[in-house]
Amino acid sequence: MLYSLAAMLRAAEWAVTAAFALATYLVLVLWTGGIGLWSLSELIAGAVLSAIVGMVAAPILWERGGFRILQPHRWVLFFFYLVGPFFLAMARANLDVAFRVITGRIRPGIVRFNPGLKTDLGKTLLANSITLTPGTLTVDVDDATGDFYVHWINVKSLEPKPEEVCGPFPSWARRIAE
């Protein structure tokens, strides 16, 4: 029973990886005509290719909790996050950097905070968001404790709360990835 469960899990991992690769491939070969937007030969070739990629890549790419990203509502959330708060924060970040480039007024430091995220994906999302948004840059992530070490270009407090550093991002990351 246990064995078959593990086998099913592996099959699922393979299938998801293959589907991911297939999606990438199919986007790349859009507009070749025939069936829908694709021609038959492209579909066959893509299926074979993605099956192989799944076989090669699946055993090394999955870790616990990875299947959460299969839920579609997370994708919708992610999209809204991308065009909504993230984009705004990014625009603000750029204006901020422009201001600092011109004035040269900086007060940098490396601070630590713990957003309390559990999954790898959530940490990654948060770290990349932090890197791309105002005045902050993820320098290190502690694997064991989940502490974030962030280079802050304009340090406001020495022991900041997560919200002070990166606004609403931790909650978004939690919503999307956990």
């Binding site: 990014m90 625009a91 970040a93 750029n94 950097v97 422009a98 600092r100 480039v101 900086i106 940098p108 890197t131 791309l132 948004t133 005045g135 840059l137 320098v139 280079h151 270009i153």
Partner: peptide
């Protein structure tokens, strides 16, 4: 003036 601030500027602005 230093690496970290340069990374700030370079990454954010070029990505945007």
């Amino acid at each position: 003036p230093d690496v970290y601030t340069r990374i700030h500027g370079a990454t954010k602005c070029t990505t945007f």
